[in-house]
Design a protein around this nucleic acid. Structure first.
Length: 271
DNA sequence: ACTGGCTCCTGAGGGC
DNA sequence: TGCCCTCAGGAGCCAG
C-alpha cells in the first residue's frame, strides 16, 4: 500500500505522540508478518524511551534506547496513535503502550509488513544495506539514474521501482512520474539518455514532494498516524484511469501490465 | 550481473 | 447466496 509519501506522512503523524515517551508495555497478538516478530521484542522494548522516528525509503525506524524498531507497512499496513486500551480491531497485530496515555498500533490485513528489533547499526542490516539514494535527498539525480541504467534492458518503470536504484517509488508514483516526464513506461532503461533522466528525476522529486504535502494518496484504506486519509488521489493524472482522457491531450489512457504490475500511460504524450 | 516469475496473505468485486 | 476468478500502495527470493 504505502509508498514514500504515505510512509513519510505516517512518520510525521506519529512522531509527536511518541518522541520522549517511555514504552510501558508491548502487546503482540500476531507474530506472523513477512518475517516473524522476534520473540524477545517485548523484553527488549519495554521500558525504553522512544527517541526520533526516522525513515529510510519505505522503512520506518523507531529509535528506542539501545536499539531500533524497524517497521515496513507492506501493501496493507498502517500505524495509528490511539488512546490506551482501545479495543483490538481485526488485523491489529501489535500495540506499544506509552507513558503519555496513548498507544501505537500496527494494523496489517495482508501481513506483508515487517517489524524487527535491531540492536546494531541499521545501515548494516541486510534489508537496508543495499538501498539506493533517497529521491528527495542530495544523492539522487538524473545522472544517477543514467549511470545505473547503462546496459539494462528492464522497462524503465520497473527500473525506478527497484529499491537498489532509488528508494520509495512504488506503483502509483512510478506511473505518475513517467507521465509527467513524457516517458513510455515500457522503454528499456538502458536506452534512455541523460536529458530524459534529468527530466524523470525532477518529476519524481516533484510528484513525491507534492504527494507528501497532500498527506499521501488514499486509494482504499491508507490512513495517517491519526486516522485521516491522504488527499493526493485527485491529482493522479493516469493511475487507475485506464480508458479516461489524458489530462494533457484527451487521448484515452492505456492500462497494461509491466513486470506483473498494473501500469498506466498516455500513448500520445509518452514515448 | 540481470531478468522475469513466484511468493507471502486477506478482502473486495465481478461474472455466472 | 455461493463459488470461482482477478486484482490490490511491496519486495525478497529463485531459477535460468
Amino acid at each position: 500500500m504505502p509508498e514514500l509519501p504515505e510512509v513519510e506522512t505516517t512518520r510525521r503523524g506519529i512522531e509527536p505522540h511518541l518522541r520522549g515517551y517511555t514504552v510501558t508495555a508491548v502487546k503482540v497478538r500476531e507474530r506472523r508478518l513477512r518475517w516473524p516478530i522476534p520473540d524477545d521484542l517485548e523484553q527488549q522494548l519495554t521500558g525504553q524511551i522512544i527517541g526520533s522516528i526516522t525513515r529510510r525509503g519505505k522503512y520506518l525506524l523507531l529509535h528506542a534506547g539501545p536499539g531500533i524498531v524497524l517497521l515496513h507497512l507492506g501493501m496493507s499496513g498502517s500505524l495509528r496513535v490511539l488512546p490506551l486500551d482501545t479495543p483490538w480491531q481485526k488485523h491489529d497485530h501489535v500495540t506499544l503502550d506509552l507513558s503519555n496515555g496513548l498507544s501505537l498500533r500496527l494494523h496489517d490485513p495482508r501481513r506483508f509488513g515487517v517489524l524487527l528489533w535491531l540492536d546494531a547499526a541499521p545501515a548494516d542490516h541486510p534489508l537496508l544495506a543495499k538501498l539506493g539514494p533517497e529521491p528527495l535527498g542530495n544523492h539522487f539525480s538524473g545522472t544517477h539514474l543514467y549511470e545505473q541504467s547503462r546496459g539494462r534492458r528492464v522497462a524503465v518503470k520497473s527500473f525506478i521501482m527497484k529499491g537498489q536504484v532509488v528508494v520509495g517509488v512504488g506503483n502509483i508514483y512510478a506511473s505518475e512520474a513517467l507521465f509527467h516526464a513524457g516517458i513510455d513506461p515500457r522503454q528499456p532503461a538502458g536506452q534512455i539518455e541523460l536529458p530524459r533522466y534529468e527530466c524523470l528525476a525532477a518529476a519524481i522529486r516533484t510528484i513525491l514532494g507534492a504527494a507528501i504535502a497532500q498527506g499521501g494518496t488514499t486509494l482504499r484504506d491508507f490512513v495517517n498516524g491519526v486516522g485521516e486519509p491522504g488527499y493526493f488521489r485527485q491529482q493522479l493524472a493516469v493511475y487507475e484511469r485506464g480508458g479516461e482522457p489524458c489530462p494533457l491531450c484527451d487521448t484515452a489512457i492505456i492500462r497494461l501490465k509491466i513486470g506483473q504490475r498494473a501500469s498506466y500511460y498516455c500513448p500520445q504524450c509518452q514515448h
